[in-house]
Amino acid sequence: MNAEVLLQNNVQAFLIHEADLLDRGLFGEWVDLFDEDGIYWVPSLPFQEDMLGQVSIILEDKELLKLRATRLAHPNAHAFSPPPSTVHLVANISTTLEGEDVIATSNLIMTVFRNDKENQLSGRVTHKLRKVLNGFRIQLKRVDLIQAGGTFSAITVPP
């Protein structure tokens, strides 16, 4: 297998694993996929460039992501009780190298089902991945939702 195909396969396996952790509600393990200085970003606007001068749906460092995971594990996280069922469908994956790092872009369809109501979030996802022994760590995960700028219901499971 040539290096390019191998990289594509490894990235795809990583993204599928990440989606699986989110769908199984293993948020602590999901947060562990982030590098110590990793950032998770869901902008509020399409094509948002400004991280600080424009509000975000989620903009969190690893400490805040841990906090988010801890809160979802609390029995009185009312918005998560009962928890929704979700499917994160990851497709259209492509990978490029940026120095030592890998930039992976993918499309996401996330279906959320809770209290007999179905909701969907979709978007284009960009992962900046650092290669580590036996895999990758997320330096940046950016989710550009097609719903950005629109009206949302509450979101508990990260897209």
Binding site: V55, L59, H78, A79, S153, I155
Partner: peptide, 19 residues
């Protein structure tokens, strides 16, 4: 801006429980 995001984002860890 952070205050707004923390309190009124649909993904807010606070507001989602009010909703």
């Amino acid at each position: 801006i952070r205050f707004l995001g923390t309190l009124v984002s649909p993904a807010s860890m606070i507001f989602s429980d009010d909703l």
